[in-house]
């Protein structure tokens, strides 16, 4: 439980960070809150020669509303998300989800940028970002680009990040007023990753679902959007038969690994239940 040796860098600007990462090459890793990276280093599952700490870069912090979007700096901690009135007002599901991550100690350190950039299917934010239609701003030696969350995740710990690139901010469209939302996460205890979790954002009109997005956490090597399940519920009043079909459609795309949380069959089964519960609770919250 002791990491290998590494050198430590603390750039003061995004440009410097990119320069460092590009010149140091493959053996350099950005360090955000360290609550995914450092445990891996202690187990020597990761042994970067260089850590480029992003804490010295003021531009990576902060939460702003720009018209119908909310922009969040990558180095904003989960705790800061929870403390933000803007998030509570515009993106209550983000508040709800952040509260289900680990424990206060982890949330004081862990950042939203690190959470979404890590590529760990167990992390809660990626599926939520896909559900919300968020996009990530990536800045690197060749300039800046925007990648939508649903195209960012390629495999466990594999993302669209190119060498030398940093995720600098996240931009999230604010869901329609009166929308319903829920993040249902089954976990064994505080500090545990999801056995299965589902994010739902929907709107209703005249007692019927008008729009719906469903995201799934930790039931596949990447976070998932359950598009077929979402399509099935649109236009319905979420009657029991529809809920059952939607859950089945979501389960059909799940491919979790068996682990100490349970066998594959169980994780898929409760994945379906999380979808049903999230849909039901979200619908009840619509105004």
């Amino acid at each position: 439980m002791i990491p290998g040796s590494f050198s430590y860098h603390r750039p003061a600007s995004v440009a410097d960070a990119i320069k460092l990462l590009s010149s140091l090459g493959d053996e350099a890793r950005p360090l955000a809150g360290g609550h995914s990276l450092i445990p891996m280093m202690k187990l020597r599952l990761a042994s970067p020669d260089h850590l480029v700490d992003l804490h010295g870069i003021a531009a990576l912090k902060g939460i702003h509303r720009d018209g119908d979007r909310v922009s969040i700096g990558a180095m904003t901690t989960q705790h800061e998300l929870l403390a933000s009135d803007e998030i509570a007002r515009s993106l209550p599901i983000l508040h709800e989800t952040a509260l289900l991550i680990a424990d206060p100690q982890v949330r004081y350190m862990g950042t939203i940028g690190g959470n979404v950039a890590n590529g760990d299917p167990g992390n809660d934010m990626p599926a939520l970002m896909m559900t919300l239609g968020a996009s990530y701003r990536l800045e690197g030696p060749n300039g800046a680009r925007e990648v939508v969350a649903s195209e960012f995740y390629q495999g466990a710990y594999f993302t669209a990040l190119e060498p030398g690139e940093i995720l600098t901010s996240i931009s999230i469209p604010v869901p329609a007023a009166g929308h319903g939302y829920a993040y249902e996460k089954l976990k064994r205890k505080i500090g545990d990753y999801a056995t299965a979790a589902a994010a739902v954002v929907l709107t209703m009109s005249g007692g019927k679902v008008a729009s719906c997005a469903i995201g799934l956490t930790n039931v596949h090597e990447t976070p998932l959007l359950a598009t077929e399940a979402a399509r099935l519920v649109v236009g319905t009043s979420l009657d029991p038969a529809t809920l059952k079909q939607a859950a089945a459609a979501a389960v059909a795309i799940m491919a979790p690994a068996a682990d100490a949380r349970g066998p594959v069959e169980y994780r898929k089964h409760v994945g379906g239940i999380m979808v049903t519960r999230a849909l039901t609770r979200a619908a009840a919250l619509t105004k």
Partner: peptide
């Protein structure tokens, strides 16, 4: 309710850290 040292068929410990070895917090 959950705390166990479990081995897979090859003899690998699958519950070798507090992530999987159930150590309840005040919440549970």
């Amino acid at each position: 309710m959950g705390q166990e040292i479990r081995y897979d068929d090859a003899g690998n410990v699958v519950t070798g850290s507090f992530m999987d070895f159930f150590m309840p917090t005040a919440v549970e």
